[in-house]
């Protein structure tokens, strides 16, 4: 690294070995002392053409809204959890609240422990869907915790019944809020997807994923996402949502050490439909367990042209805990 003293400004050569540019440092007054150079922020993650709008909040919101961004994470079941829910470029530009929501939590039980991951996506044209998603994830988490604590053995659980009960409770909570506010429940419409993780056989983690609507999951294995079928000729814009629909789909996934389960709203799932872009996300998300929360947020808050929806993704890397 080389420097040149230009009067009161010390300029640091920006060519560095690690790819990060370094910031010029400015010293005012005497005596001049050289501040240590620090890496500059690398700018947004751009796995393709970047959005033209900067993904920054405009006016500060007034009223009772969820925060622009929520980050969480921890270790459970021998694996690592990273979770982020980020307001999309469109909502930031238009001073509208984040309509996605998420919660992650650990449940201690006699037979060990379980993890519960929940994501939800308030339907865009429903007036109070930001509240709907927030109420939905809270109610679903509470209900799942309660039901899991009643399980004598996770190997004998009726998962379909569990999923229906959780979705019913979330629906009832949303409908109750709508009733209290004297607003149609449809104005609180939200998708919801919940995963319960327990220890499986021979070092695996068993994940049950249940959901209503187009939030869902993908699996990252050996550095690549699972392959999906082709997309439709024309994309139409309907989705099932709570509280009008509460019949969930239920699937199970056995995670091997090193596998990553990604539970996400469509703001993330749609990004992963493109194979090239999916590979770039896979490359970033394959670095656990060394991925800090700030790095994880940087990946999820990527700048991608035309994909300006809220983004929520909860990742669980099996067998990655230190």
């Amino acid at each position: 690294m080389s420097t040149a003293d230009l009067g009161h400004v010390s300029v640091v050569d920006t060519a560095t070995a690690d790819g990060f540019e370094e910031t010029p440092t400015e010293n005012v007054g005497e005596p001049q002392t050289m501040l240590p150079s620090v890496p500059a922020f690398p700018g947004p993650f751009t796995p393709g053409r970047p959005a033209r709008a900067p993904s920054m909040p405009n006016g500060l919101l007034s009223g009772e809204f969820e925060a622009d961004t929520v980050l969480d994470g921890g270790q459970v079941l021998g694996g690592v959890v990273r979770a982020a829910s980020v307001r999309g470029t469109s909502h930031r530009w238009d001073n509208e609240p984040r309509q996605d929501a998420m919660l992650v939590g650990r449940v201690e039980v006699e037979w060990g422990e379980a993890a519960v991951l929940v994501v939800a996506d308030g339907v865009g044209n429903a007036a109070h869907s930001d509240r709907g998603s927030a109420i939905g994830v809270k109610a679903a988490m509470d209900s799942a915790r309660h039901l899991i604590q009643e399980w004598a053995d996770p190997g004998t659980v009726d998962v379909d019944q569990f999923a229906r009960r959780v979705m019913d409770v979330a629906s009832e909570a949303i409908a109750s809020e709508a009733h209290e506010r004297q607003v149609s429940p449809a104005e609180f419409a939200t998708t919801l997807c919940l995963a319960v993780l327990v220890r499986g056989e021979t070092g695996t983690v068993r994940a049950w994923v249940c959901g209503v609507g187009d939030s869902g999951h993908r699996t990252l294995r050996r550095g690549a996402f699972d392959v999906l079928d082709g997309t439709e000729e024309i994309q139409d814009t309907l989705t099932a949502a709570l509280p009008s629909t509460s019949v969930p789909t239920v699937t199970s996934v056995d995670l091997l050490p090193g596998d990553c389960l990604v539970l996400a709203t469509d703001g993330v799932l749609n990004l992963l439909l493109d194979q090239e872009r999916s590979a770039r996300f896979a490359s970033q998300l394959s670095v656990s367990p060394d991925m800090g929360l700030a790095h994880y947020l940087w990946v999820i808050d990527a700048s991608v042209r035309s994909f300006d929806d809220d983004r929520t993704a909860v990742c669980f890397w099996a067998g990655s805990a230190r």
Partner: peptide, 13 residues
């Protein structure tokens, strides 16, 4: 262009 439907896609308004 700025209103998203349930699918995260723009929807006609």
């Amino acid at each position: 262009g700025s209103t998203l439907a349930g699918t995260g896609a723009p929807t006609l308004q």
